[in-house]
Design a protein around this nucleic acid. Structure first.
Length: 282
DNA sequence: AAACGCAGCAACCGCCATACA
DNA sequence: CTGTATGGCGGTTGCTGCGTT
């Protein structure tokens, strides 16, 4: 469903509904690299019509130079803030949309009653739900329901006991969250094949695997880029920028290779090919 | 079938907190 | 301490879809 209409603001940044192409680029980019800076992410994610490939994190000097050339020449189509919002509210892995369960509604009602409109806090207790979605749920459904129940004295709403709604008691699973790569799929949390047998930190809600977004995990995931820990074991090819990129490319090609590659373009650009393709040298 | 009104919700806006130079 | 950049949050907007008239 559309939100605000599409247009550009005074700075030339695109606004309004996101296109599938923009979603794909943003998802592929963050899946591949995480994000180190929302403000710069649109540049690297290729959120522009005519420049969609060859970006890598600025951990490599060569890459920074490439980015800087592009930065000097081109505008950004989406603000970092817009990218962040889109990712957090819609594109994140394992996000649920619509169809709130009775239990979810009851958690929202109880926590809203307890702590007020602290949507991000409430969202942290509902895996797969964004604060925006919960806020909308409250404003469009639950607020009326609560008001109706209060007026009518109805007990339709099953509120949680105080200890159940206590913010210090996380009702969802707590799990060590990390990027996993299994059968070509990059995802967060314990792999499905391991979740049922994991004994380290699961609290028993195995049906909620593989992800949660409690505060502790959010801090790690949202503030640090994805850095594979096995890069040292990957041989460095002469035409690759770094072992870091090599590993990322491997994971990336397995998880979302349709983003940058067409059927007849199956290669990863080197610095030289990038310059040939994208930079005019006087 | 057309017009209208409302609900749902994605996205924007503005403010605040924090980090950093 | 001050100014700036950035991220996060809650409130609000306005487009779309659907039901009603």
């Amino acid at each position: 469903m559309m939100g605000k209409g599409s247009c550009c603001d005074k700075n030339g940044l695109k606004k309004g509904a996101w296109t599938e192409d923009e979603d794909r680029k943003l998802t592929a980019y963050i899946t591949r690299y995480g994000h180190w800076n929302w403000g710069l992410l649109p540049q690297f994610a290729g959120m522009r019509d005519h420049f969609t490939s060859s970006y890598f994190p600025p951990v490599d000097f060569n890459i920074f130079i490439l980015w800087f050339f592009d930065f000097l020449c081109l505008g950004v189509s989406r603000s970092g803030k817009s990218c962040r919002l889109r990712w957090m509210n819609y594109l994140r892995p394992n996000m649920k949309h619509g169809n709130f369960t009775e239990d979810e509604d009851n958690v929202i009602i109880s926590l809203q009653n307890k702590i007020g409109n602290k949507w991000s806090k409430i969202a942290s207790k509902l895996p797969g739900r964004s604060d925006n979605e919960i806020k909308n749920r409250w404003n469009t459904h639950l607020k009326k329901r609560v008001q109706h129940d209060q007026v009518s004295g109805s007990k339709h709403t099953r509120t949680l006991e105080p200890d159940q709604a206590n913010l210090d008691v996380n009702p969802v699973i707590e799990t060590d969250v990390e990027f996993q790569h299994e059968d070509g799929i990059l995802f967060l949390g314990v792999p499905p094949s391991e979740s049922s047998s994991s004994s380290s930190s699961s609290t028993g809600s195995s049906d909620l695997t593989p992800q949660t977004f409690d505060d502790e995990m959010v801090g790690d995931f949202w503030t640090e880029p994805f850095l594979p820990d096995n890069e040292a074991s990957i041989p460095l090819g002469d035409n690759l920028w770094s072992p870091f990129n090599f590993v990322n490319d491997f994971i990336y090609q397995s998880s979302c290779q349709d983003m940058f590659m067409t059927d007849d373009e199956v290669f990863w650009p080197t610095f030289d090919t990038y310059v040939e393709d994208n930079v005019e040298i006087n």
